[in-house]
Simulated scan of single mutants.
Amino acid sequence: MTKAERTRQFIIEQSAPVFNTKGVAGTAMSDVMQATKMAKGGLYGHFESKEELSFAVVDYCLNTISESVCSGLNRKKTAKEKLFYFIDHFAKVDKPVIEGGCPMLNFGSEADDTNPAIKQRVNRSIKESQALLKGILACGQANNEFKADWQIDEFAIKMFAMLEGGVLMARVADNNDVMKQISKMLKDEIIANCI
């Protein structure tokens, strides 16, 4: 990495918790200046606009979540272990990978009517997450871990939607009890479909 690339990455990493907490619309360049301890001119030397920076930050946040999940999944052997890990990863609402909570939920909620470019990025991340779950479930069926008649495509959608909904409910209530219930329901269904 060149010095300019390192500085650009530093700006993105330091700005990520700010954007993820305050949202794109709620984040001012003065917030970014405070987080990075850089002058406005230095920031604009690396990003032409707040919009360009926000796109880079959203990509960084979504990639960071994906990498965090995948690195943990790679350490698990069975499909059941992988699914349980995925559930546990999202159930840690009080310990998010990026300060501010789940970026898919945060940026998706904000951008659905206001920012088509960010909406598209979040939508791609949601589809990738669901495809990942479907892949784990399909491997589990192929390896005779799960019942052959389990509707895995439906379960992948349900699992992802319940986890994201649980994150929202837990963060709004400042209480993780609902997420614990959701985690148990999902794990119980997985166990019920094991061979």
Rank of each mutant, 00 (worst) to 15 (best):
Q120N: 10
N143W: 10
M162W: 09
N144S: 12
I118A: 02
M162Q: 10
G135L: 04
N123H: 13
R124H: 13
F160I: 03
F107P: 03
D112L: 10
A111N: 04
E154F: 15
G108R: 07
K134I: 06
L163W: 05
K119S: 12
N143Y: 10
S125G: 05
A117P: 04
R121L: 14
E128R: 13
S109K: 15
A117T: 15
D113P: 00
D153S: 08
D153E: 15
A138H: 08
I136P: 00
D153K: 03
G108I: 05
I126Y: 14
D149Y: 13
N115P: 00
K127N: 11
A142G: 00
E128M: 08
A131Y: 03
P116F: 11
S109H: 06
A138G: 03
I136T: 07
A148F: 11
I136S: 02
D113T: 14
Q151W: 12
E154D: 15
M162R: 11
S125Q: 12
E154A: 14
E128C: 04
L133P: 01
P116E: 05
A111I: 05
T114H: 13
S129Y: 05
K134S: 05
I118H: 01
F160S: 04
W150R: 00
A148H: 10
Q130K: 13
N144F: 10
I126R: 09
S129V: 02
M159S: 10
Q130C: 08
E128Q: 12
E145R: 01
A131W: 01
D153H: 05
I152A: 04
I136R: 01
A148Y: 06
A142F: 08
Q130R: 14
D149E: 15
L163C: 06
E128Y: 06
W150N: 02
K158H: 12
I152D: 01
F107T: 04
N144L: 09
V122L: 07
A138T: 06
S109I: 09
N143T: 06
A111G: 07
L137G: 03
M159D: 06
L133D: 03
D153G: 07
D113A: 11
A148R: 07
K158N: 08
E110D: 06
Q151A: 14
F160V: 02
S125C: 12
L137C: 11
V122Y: 06
D113C: 11
I136K: 01
Q151L: 13
M162S: 10
F146M: 04
Q151C: 06
M159V: 10
E128W: 02
I126M: 12
T114R: 14
K158W: 08
F160R: 07
